[in-house]
Design a protein around this nucleic acid. Structure first.
Length: 782
DNA sequence: GGTACACAGATTTTT
DNA sequence: TCTGTGTACC
């Protein structure tokens, strides 16, 4: 028997060695899922199956990379390089780059990220004369995305009665038309958004028989990780690809399905057995990761969900410690507690930074942890947040490159045509757009014949200079590699110089980011080709397509000795010695956006299941009784999930110190801080064993304290007929004034600098406003 | 056409 | 708190 099969249990070995025919592996958390997948691939190859015939799809680049590395380790050679391992999106993008022309797209198509897509939506809304308050680009995008993931095209969308009704009720009757216009605009721009990568590949397989034939033959063995997270588009693609050989292996855990907001449906995992005859099902129920205690907590919590594949995780691991429940008065205290505890654990139990993860529901929660870790001098890595490639300066630079590769990309053109400023303003751009729409040309095509459009001489020169410059860049594409082109563009457009001259902190950072971008292009250009001698595409176009699919996490070293901060979603598939599950509060986790239906709530609970099962040895669960949201203090009840944990496995001695800490809301006085440090959470522990109202009685709505009634809407004021701005040189507190928009009010105080005084005025209709006296038109009434 | 400033609105999760 | 957008002035 081969070495690599040695370390497997019976079930795992069964899954690995079943070579032909469909197989579904239901793998509980920590049951060695990745090990099975990678060993299985290695085993396939050891059995003589050509690595070129194996396709493995994951959801994150991180997972793909890890799989590749582990296979290489097992095999001890470079053969793994030839495997098609990657995310759905990246693998499909790679194939579409060969095949796009067969479905009417340029092979150099642009990939739009979420920001790009939303900006196209804004453009479309604008052109359709629709209000972007009524049609919020965000919501429109999500709606379109949901349709695409369900394989509902614009035409079908507009003809679906139920969808129509839904949109009517949501006061968005034009949704279907927007969808159609958006899809058409993307097509015209030669661009695909993330969802298009899935559905265009599907269309390719469905409509082009040769393509279907080719890829069915190529991918004789298909493996899908995290199958519970596939959406209908992905499901259909797999079904088509696997139809010929039926060697489809899916691995999943219905209890960890947390992406239904992206269209994933657990149905896919339940459906699998019906799709093929003789599906082999293997259940992996032995957990090798966590302590008995952690596992028991997880098992009980997930039991509150209805409808799941019956399975019970067990482990041979030791009992371990109880879960520690932490209650703090504020988000900042939560951050401080966690940072202090990490420090303490490091000293007492000889943990390293890398043994800790702080996991939360929303990215916005990271701040308090970051601040406190920094204060303690603990190294950390934050995942999520703004990705490198979505920084403004990077997007600007990349937009130039995108435009070079695909001149139809109107979005890119709009971004760069006047950056850096070259005297092409809004009026000119509006006119360009108008001409483009009338003649159904791309903006670039209009630019090329700008002379015919009748611009003023000065404007025309600016436009033509821009075209000349871009053409000179384009001529480089043939003979030069991606790096040389990019460096040249940066220099010629003066982007680099401009950022270099900006000596502000942000300016310096931006300059460094551009340098980093250039470095990464260089590195990419110089990285080796495939070892079978297959030439890897090193063109600028290929580079651009792959960076859009890169996330922030892909540039970071997971093995660095740092505390890891990330959302629970991002933590799926990872494990840590010590885990802090933070922000266990009603309306935060479960999130207020996701408690409207039973399904949504169950997904939140699965999320909680995921955090709990990330921990190997120790788990802390924390919540704050109040936290800042948009700058104002919000009070929350403890999460219902806390009550769902078995009480005997939870140590609540840290959950009662809130009374003492409550006062820290007044601001962090140094003395106060010092006094409380170290013992604040344990000293008062006995005083309040019970926290909050018992389950069932709790309010699910957060209460807002100290909030003034919302005064966001301006009450329209009709200015007096004789309205004339008074001389406001010596305005004084107490005076009564009239403001054009806000109406009558009384000046409360005047401050600000002498030459630009600011008046705080209490208006009768519109509440308090701060107004710059020099700009506002005020009439002194008395 | 460019700049400076004020104000409204935003945050659930990701490829 | 932070960012994008609108607007008034240069």
């Amino acid at each position: 028997m081969q070495d690599y099969l040695q370390g497997l249990n019976d079930r795992q070995r069964e899954a690995v060695t079943h070579i032909n025919g469909p197989i579904m592996i239901v793998a509980g958390a920590g049951s060695g899922k990745t090990k099975v997948l990678t060993t299985r691939i290695a085993h396939l190859m050891a059995q003589g199956i050509d690595s070129f015939n194996i396709l493995a799809l994951t959801f994150t680049n991180k997972a793909a990379k890890e799989m590749k590395e582990r296979i290489e380790k097992i095999l001890g050679n470079n053969e793994a390089r030839n495997l098609y391992i990657g995310t759905f999106h990246s693998v499909f993008a790679r194939i579409l780059r060969f095949e796009a022309d067969k479905i009417g797209y340029p092979n150099n198509f642009t990939i739009y990220d979420t920001d790009d897509a939303k900006s196209v939506i804004k453009t479309v809304l604008n052109e359709m004369n629709l209000d972007d308050k009524q049609y919020k680009p965000n919501q429109v995008y999500n709606r379109i995305s949901a349709a695409k993931n369900a394989l509902v095209g614009p035409h079908e969308y507009m003809n679906d009665y139920a969808l129509q009704q839904e949109d009517m009720r949501a006061n968005r009757p034009a949704m279907g038309q927007i969808y159609a216009a958006y899809a058409q605009r993307c097509f015209k721009n030669g661009a695909m958004d993330f969802d298009d990568l899935l559905i265009k590949f599907y269309e390719l397989l469905k409509n082009v028989p040769e393509a279907l034939h080719k890829y069915q033959h190529k991918f004789k063995y298909i493996l899908i990780d995290e199958y519970q997270d596939t959406n209908p588009a992905q499901y259909e693609v797999i079904k088509l690809l696997g139809a010929m050989h039926e060697n489809v292996c899916v691995v999943g855990d219905d209890a960890q399905s947390i992406y239904s907001f992206r269209g994933a449906t657990i149905q896919n995992i339940l459906q699998f057995q019906k799709d093929y005859d003789n599906v082999k099902v293997v259940m992996l129920e032995q957990n090798y990761r966590s302590t008995q205690t952690i596992l028991n907590v997880a098992n009980q919590v997930i039991g509150f969900n209805k409808g799941q594949i019956e399975k019970k995780l067990f482990t041979d691991n030791s009992t371990g410690e109880k879960i520690k429940l932490i209650r703090t008065a504020s988000d900042n205290d939560e951050g401080r507690f966690v940072a202090d505890t990490i420090q303490e654990q490091k000293l007492r139990n000889h943990f390293n930074n890398r043994d800790f993860a702080i996991l939360y529901r929303t990215n916005a929660q990271s701040r308090a942890f970051e601040e406190n870790l920094r204060r303690m001098g603990i190294a950390y890595t934050m995942y999520g947040g703004t990705s490198f490639y979505s920084r403004k300066e990077i997007k600007d630079m990349v937009a130039y490159l995108r435009l070079l590769v695909n001149t139809n990309d109107d979005e890119a053109l709009k971004r760069v045509i006047n950056y850096p400023a070259r005297g092409i303003g809004k009026t000119t751009i509006d006119k360009l757009i108008l001409v483009a729409n009338e003649s159904n040309l791309s903006l670039w095509q209009v630019l090329e014949r700008a002379r015919e459009a009748g611009f003023r001489a000065g404007t025309l020169t600016a436009l033509e200079d821009f075209v000349t410059m871009m053409k000179s860049f384009m001529s480089m594409l043939q003979k030069n590699n991606a790096y040389d082109v990019a460096a040249h563009v940066g220099k010629q457009t003066t982007i680099i110089k401009e950022l270099f001259n900006d000596k502000s902190t942000e300016g310096v950072a931006r300059y460094e980011n551009i340098q980093e971008l250039l470095n990464s292009i260089k590195e990419w250009t110089e990285s080796p080709d495939n070892d079978e001698g297959e030439l890897v595409d090193k063109s600028l176009g290929a580079y651009l397509q792959q960076i859009t699919l890169l996330t922030d996490a892909d540039n970071k070293d997971p093995n660095a000795d740092t505390v890891k901060l990330m959302t629970i979603h991002a933590a799926k598939g990872l494990e840590f010695e010590c885990v802090f599950a933070a922000g266990l509060e009603e309306s935060l986790f479960p999130n207020a956006m996701a408690i409207n239906t039973r399904e949504e709530l169950e997904e939140e609970r699965r999320l909680f299941y995921v955090v709990v099962t990330r921990a190997k040895k120790r788990l802390w669960v924390s919540y704050a009784t109040s936290r800042y949201k948009f700058g104002s203090l919000v009070q929350n009840e403890p999460s219902r999930f806390i009550e769902e944990m078995p009480a005997e496995l939870v140590d609540r001695s840290f959950a009662g110190g809130g009374v003492l800490k409550q006062t820290s809301g007044f601001g962090n006085k140094p003395a106060f801080e010092r006094m409380n440090k170290g013992n604040a959470w344990s000293s008062a522990g006995q005083a309040e064993k019970k926290y909050g109202p018992p389950p069932g009685k709790e309010k699910t709505n957060p209460s807002y304290i100290g909030a003034t009634p919302p005064a966001n809407k301006v009450v329209e004021h009709k200015a007096s007929e004789d309205f004339a701005a008074s001389d406001t040189a010596d305005l004084k507190a107490g005076q009564r004034v009239e403001h054009l928009k806000f109406g009558f009010g009384e000046i409360l105080k005047i401050d600000g600098s002498a030459h630009n005084p600011m008046a705080t005025i209490k208006f009768e209709q519109n509440g308090e406003k701060k107004i710059l006296v020099n700009y506002a038109k005020l009439r002194i009434v008395e």
